[in-house]
Write a protein that binds this DNA or RNA. Structure first.
Lengths: 224, 224
DNA sequence: GAGTCAACGATTTTCGAAAATCCGTGTGAT
DNA sequence: ATCACACGGATTTTCGAAAATCGTTGACTC
């Protein structure tokens, strides 16, 4: 039945995950070319699903396509970091404002649950403190999604989700450079508390500052 | 050399344009399934480039994908119209604010030029007044892009472009229903004048109202 | 008669090879 | 010495068919 992969969906989906993971963890570096031959070897499949995976990754900004020259990993830059940060402050800020205003009991419950799961595990790995734990990053994403889940705008949610994943590589960089210097846990707790207290403006301000700090922590790195 | 198509790029790109045009003009209706056999016949090529085209269209919200059930044309709804409108008011509003603040002489020149080209031709076709002219729509898109071109944020520009094209089908619907009742030309002129006068807040307000009217004109339609 | 399940047809998804394209190298002319 | 151009290898892009999957029909049991 399933060709040795009980994933349950399509090979293209598996390829998407595999390549995305390679990019996020740094197995392939920004600017590197992504040759189909290599990716086929990595994913263990033919060219067609790999091509579809790259199309999706390109739509999300992880890779870029040059016609007839193939795909390569999108570069990182200070300019893009600032751009992403500003866009997130705008879009996710507005989504949070709406969510705090319109959220019901279920939204509160989901937020508390997501925060609890995230707070239960450490951010960095025990063996290599400069590397972010995969499961923490997943719960971190869930927490931020829970904050804005009640905004009522699928399009805004989609935009925020894409921006969040696009910021992922910068976030990892921040952790590897600054370590646990920042009180990220406290910032998250405060965000949740402001949201639950229905302090929309306060929560939005805290969120913007939250993102601003991540960007600021990396400003220095890019100048070197 | 080129296989009868002097397009100059890739077949996947041609397929993207062809299918997108079929969707925009209503040759295929919202909700319709898009069978690969039909699309191959329409585009005159094999399945691979068609598949890549659909992947791109899905990323832009024109089509939706059900695993193992193929692609279909995305539906239209009042809820989505409202959602798109709100997102555009937020993102394009902010982009316009930045653009008006930071734009230089070249930006002004580009804006004036784009407006002139758009104002030179009528919005609707002579033979069928309820159908929007293709070339007008293209210049209309260029004009709106020119308004925000100087915002300095590639990501914001990309978001706005996607939202603009996603609103395209609703815009056509609006033209076919209300005809030329609205003074769209005047609204555009006013937008340009406010931008050139560096009245950021006034321009943003005008833009929001501009979009709000398109949405309002369609509210009634969806309730029937 | 209602429900379950297996086989069929339609369609998507994937494969492996062929065709087209790009980039770098080397040759020859000015 | 510099430039233009053609050739060759590496890589992407596309093809046409095979494999996998889904929805449905129809027979069979309870």
């Amino acid at each position: 039945m399933d060709q040795k992969k009980p994933g349950g969906r399509t090979l293209a989906g598996d390829a998407y995950e595999a390549i995305r993971q390679s990019i996020r963890t740094g197995a392939v570096k920004p600017g590197d070319r992504l040759r189909f031959a290599d990716l086929q070897a990595l994913c263990g499949m033919s060219v067609t699903p790999v091509r579809e995976a790259l199309a999706r990754l390109t739509a999300e900004g992880f890779t870029v396509l040059d016609d007839h020259r193939g795909y390569s990993v999108a570069s990182l830059s200070l300019a893009e970091l600032r751009d992403i940060t500003a866009a997130r402050q705008l879009c996710e800020g507005e989504a949070l404002r709406l969510s705090v205003t319109k959220g019901d009991g279920d939204w509160e419950a989901g937020l508390v649950a997501a925060h609890h799961l995230m707070a239960r595990i450490p951010q960095a790995r025990d063996d290599i403190p400069s590397v972010m734990r995969e499961d923490w990053e997943a719960r971190h994403a869930t927490f931020h999604a829970a904050l804005i889940a009640a905004c009522g705008s699928p399009i805004l949610l989609e935009i925020c989700e894409k921006l969040f994943s696009r910021a992922d590589r910068y976030r990892r960089l921040s952790v590897s450079l600054t370590g646990g210097a920042r009180d990220v846990t406290g910032e998250h707790r405060r965000l949740m508390e402001l949201a639950l207290a229905r302090d929309a403006e306060g929560a939005v301000a805290a969120l913007r500052e939250h993102y601003g700090r991540t960007a600021a922590a990396l400003e220095g790195f890019f100048k070197a």
